[in-house]
Design a protein around this nucleic acid. Structure first.
Length: 160
DNA sequence: ACTACGATGAACT
DNA sequence: GTTCATCGTAGTA
């Protein structure tokens, strides 16, 4: 949740510093400094010169890319930012969700447990499906993409 | 200084 | 299914 706008995370990908696809793989740089700031920080980076992508930093410069959200709050604001109203298309991808939540470089390096963020771990366990990551050319075979089984808000379906 | 290339998405055919 | 917009970063010279 960001400034009261957000929802339930339904799709993520994991990145580890020893994983060639991770931005932390090459060591610390000005861009990825937030990944080395410790657990609970937020790492935001520009993708393809156009989009923003939103990550949670975990221990040891590993991170979780938030790839999709099921919108539950602030739908109207999301729709305005995205220029669409279809709830399935508001946050079904890393760049889309960042746009819908108003995330940009000014959030890079902030902490997840302080404003404007509000992070609440889910109470009831959700059925999770696992698959290969998307959109990368290195270590693409690692099954480090996680999603809520059967969710209609995923960026793409998982391979059977 | 110069170049190549994305942890993407939207618009096409 | 394919094409491409668009620019910061990192690698090379």
């Amino acid at each position: 949740m960001v400034d009261g706008v957000g929802g339930i995370i339904v799709e993520t990908e994991a990145y580890h510093p020893e994983d060639a696809a991770s931005h932390a793989f090459i060591g610390q740089t000005p861009r990825n400094r937030a990944m080395f700031a410790g657990p609970g920080h937020v790492y935001v980076y520009r993708s393809y010169g156009i989009h923003w992508c939103f990550n949670f930093v975990c221990a040891d410069a590993s991170a979780v890319l938030v790839r999709a959200i099921e919108p539950t709050a602030g739908l109207a604001e999301m729709a305005e930012r995205r220029g669409l109203a279809d709830p399935r298309k508001l946050c079904s991808g890393p760049g889309k969700l960042a746009q819908a939540l108003g995330i940009s470089d000014r959030h890079d390096g902030l902490r997840l447990d302080s404003t404007p963020f509000r992070f609440t771990p889910s109470t009831d366990p959700l059925p999770v499906v696992i698959g290969p990551r998307i959109g990368i050319s290195k270590a693409a075979e690692l099954p480090w993409r996680f999603g809520v089984a059967g969710s209609a808000f995923l960026s793409r379906n998982f391979p059977t």
